[in-house]
């Protein structure tokens, strides 16, 4: 079933970290950008298909670091009440649970990396934290895009689930923040993520609007952060499977 999301948090908390490292040095600088110890946020997800708004969802998200491990809870407020909980470990497989409004928490087994997250244009893979060493990076030049002057870095996953053949990260020269990501599948551009309204919140660069778009313009999912706080106290019990 749905694999737990660890890094909607990462996107909201700092997508610069999410797509860290390129032609290794660039991506290391990007990866070195400040990362929050905890985050509490609220966001609205709007799904557009064929130019029309099809669905609006709202969710809350809590994340907290535990050393090199981390925990994330995504709690949908409307129209469903689904909860996703992920315990992410540096040295072993992640653990994931979900709970529907009427059922008991269920542990999720199996990989859903390439599958859509709540029927949006995001895959579970897009929401995961990425380890800098999991990829090989190649600098593909520099490009000026609406987000600013960028390094264009190609990343190819070394092993594990390869949802994409490769991804292209556009890393802003001014602050090493990733402003756009192109995702390729079977040699073709499948979709692209653009980060907008990038602001420093509590010292953390945070995009307040993220849009995952299809290249043919026929669909997109827009996540708008309505509130976000970094490095605040978050109750550990939130991340307990039993209290889901």
């Amino acid at each position: 079933m749905k694999r737990m999301i660890i890094c909607v948090a990462s996107i909201i908390a700092g997508a610069g970290v999410l797509y860290a490292l390129t032609g290794r040095e660039i991506m290391e600088k990007s990866d070195a950008l400040p990362d929050p110890a905890s985050t509490e946020s609220r966001a609205v997800m709007k799904i557009y298909r064929n130019g029309a708004l099809k669905e609006t969802k709202e969710f809350q998200m809590y994340s907290k670091k535990y050393g090199q491990d981390s925990r994330v809870l995504i709690r949908f407020i409307r129209p469903t009440k689904i909860k996703f909980l992920t315990h992410s470990y540096k040295s072993r497989e992640d653990l994931q649970w979900l709970k529907t409004s009427s059922g008991k928490p269920k542990k999720i087994v199996g990989s859903d990396s390439g599958k859509p997250f709540v029927l949006s244009h995001f895959f579970y893979e897009d929401l995961k934290g990425r380890e800098i060493d999991d990829y090989n990076y190649t600098l593909r030049g520099e490009e000026s895009i609406p987000g600013g002057e960028c390094y264009k870095v190609e990343a190819a996953k070394k092993s594990g689930d390869k949802v994409y053949d490769r991804i292209e990260l556009f890393v802003r020269k001014s602050d090493y923040f990733v402003v756009r990501v192109n995702f390729y599948q079977k040699g073709k551009l499948l979709k692209f993520l653009t980060n907008y309204d990038i602001k420093s919140i509590d010292g953390i660069l945070t995009p307040l609007r993220m849009v995952m778009s299809l290249p043919d313009g026929k669909g997109k999912t827009e996540i708008t952060v309505t509130s976000v706080k970094h490095n605040i106290p978050v109750n550990d019990s939130l991340f307990n499977k039993g209290t889901l």
Partner: peptide
């Protein structure tokens, strides 16, 4: 019995949406 539960089942069903049309 609950419409919300059914909606949730559709959203958490594990499957590809190759054409991104919102249907697995």
């Amino acid at each position: 019995d609950s419409a919300t539960t059914i909606r949730e089942y559709f959203e958490i069903f594990s499957g590809n949406d190759s054409d991104f049309d919102g249907r697995i």
